[in-house]
Deep mutational scan, measured.
Amino acid sequence: QIFVKTLTGKTITLEVEPSDTIENVKAKIQDKEGIPPDQQRLIFAGKQLEDGRTLSDYNIQKESTLHLVL
């Protein structure tokens, strides 16, 4: 699982696999929060994550925290 922290300070927990794409993660966030993926920007280690890449591409491991910017 990974954590996604929103600007409001809320933390969302997501069940993911390293092979999941960023697009996939955004879809999971939409399921939980109702935020359309095209409004979501995910930041990890100061980098904006691209939809077509996977979590493992960015070396995002379990218990990692991503930041969600709208």
Score class of each variant (00 low, 15 high):
residue 23 E to P: 03
residue 25 V to E: 00
residue 66 L to Y: 02
residue 26 K to E: 01
residue 13 T to E: 07
residue 5 K to N: 06
residue 55 L to Y: 01
residue 42 L to A: 00
residue 60 I to M: 03
residue 5 K to W: 06
residue 54 T to Y: 06
residue 37 P to N: 07
residue 24 N to K: 12
residue 32 K to S: 09
residue 49 L to S: 00
residue 14 L to A: 02
residue 9 G to S: 04
residue 23 E to M: 14
residue 54 T to N: 05
residue 44 F to L: 04
residue 13 T to M: 10
residue 50 E to W: 05
residue 14 L to G: 00
residue 69 V to H: 10
residue 39 Q to K: 12
residue 48 Q to V: 14
residue 23 E to L: 15
residue 48 Q to K: 08
residue 45 A to P: 01
residue 21 T to K: 08
residue 9 G to Y: 04
residue 17 E to L: 11
residue 24 N to L: 15
residue 31 D to P: 02
residue 34 G to D: 05
residue 12 I to A: 02
residue 16 V to A: 07
residue 2 I to M: 05
residue 70 L to W: 10
residue 3 F to G: 02
residue 6 T to W: 15
residue 61 Q to S: 11
residue 28 K to M: 14
residue 8 T to Y: 14
residue 6 T to S: 06
residue 53 R to S: 07
residue 17 E to M: 12
residue 44 F to N: 02
residue 34 G to T: 03
residue 16 V to K: 01
residue 58 Y to F: 04
residue 40 Q to Y: 14
residue 21 T to W: 05
residue 32 K to L: 12
residue 11 T to K: 08
residue 59 N to V: 04
residue 40 Q to G: 03
residue 9 G to A: 04
residue 66 L to N: 01
residue 27 A to F: 15
residue 20 D to P: 01
residue 58 Y to H: 03
residue 18 P to H: 08
residue 26 K to A: 02
residue 27 A to T: 11
residue 35 I to C: 06
residue 64 S to K: 04
residue 50 E to S: 07
residue 53 R to Q: 09
residue 23 E to Y: 15
residue 67 H to K: 07
residue 53 R to E: 04
residue 50 E to T: 07
residue 14 L to T: 01
residue 50 E to Y: 07
residue 11 T to S: 07
residue 47 K to A: 10
residue 62 K to A: 15
residue 10 K to F: 10
residue 6 T to E: 04
residue 25 V to N: 00
residue 44 F to D: 01
residue 58 Y to V: 02
residue 21 T to A: 05
residue 47 K to Y: 09
residue 5 K to T: 13
residue 51 D to M: 05
residue 40 Q to R: 02
residue 21 T to N: 04
residue 34 G to W: 03
residue 33 E to F: 11
residue 62 K to L: 13
residue 60 I to C: 03
residue 53 R to P: 05
residue 2 I to R: 01
residue 64 S to Y: 09
residue 22 I to A: 02
residue 13 T to F: 08
residue 36 P to Q: 06
residue 29 I to A: 02
residue 13 T to H: 07
residue 70 L to Y: 11
residue 9 G to F: 04
residue 15 E to S: 12
residue 55 L to A: 03
residue 61 Q to L: 11
residue 6 T to V: 10
residue 33 E to M: 13
residue 42 L to R: 00
residue 1 Q to D: 05
residue 43 I to A: 05
residue 53 R to T: 06
residue 62 K to V: 12
residue 36 P to M: 06
residue 60 I to T: 02
residue 54 T to E: 04
residue 11 T to M: 11
residue 28 K to S: 04
residue 10 K to D: 07
residue 4 V to M: 02
residue 27 A to S: 12
residue 2 I to E: 01
residue 24 N to T: 15
residue 4 V to W: 01
residue 34 G to A: 05
residue 41 R to V: 15
residue 40 Q to P: 01
residue 10 K to T: 08
residue 23 E to T: 09
residue 39 Q to T: 08
residue 31 D to N: 10
residue 15 E to W: 15
residue 20 D to S: 07
residue 41 R to W: 09
residue 65 T to G: 03
residue 57 D to P: 00
residue 16 V to E: 00
residue 62 K to D: 13
residue 3 F to R: 06
residue 52 G to L: 09
residue 63 E to V: 04
residue 33 E to L: 14
residue 11 T to E: 05
residue 52 G to K: 11
residue 19 S to W: 13
residue 37 P to S: 13
residue 65 T to Q: 06
residue 30 Q to T: 10
residue 52 G to M: 09
residue 11 T to P: 04
residue 30 Q to W: 15
residue 14 L to P: 00
residue 47 K to F: 10
residue 52 G to S: 12
residue 20 D to H: 06
residue 68 L to A: 02
residue 17 E to V: 10
residue 47 K to I: 13
residue 46 G to Y: 05
residue 24 N to A: 14
residue 63 E to D: 15
residue 54 T to I: 06
residue 53 R to K: 13
residue 21 T to C: 05
residue 69 V to D: 07
residue 20 D to E: 09
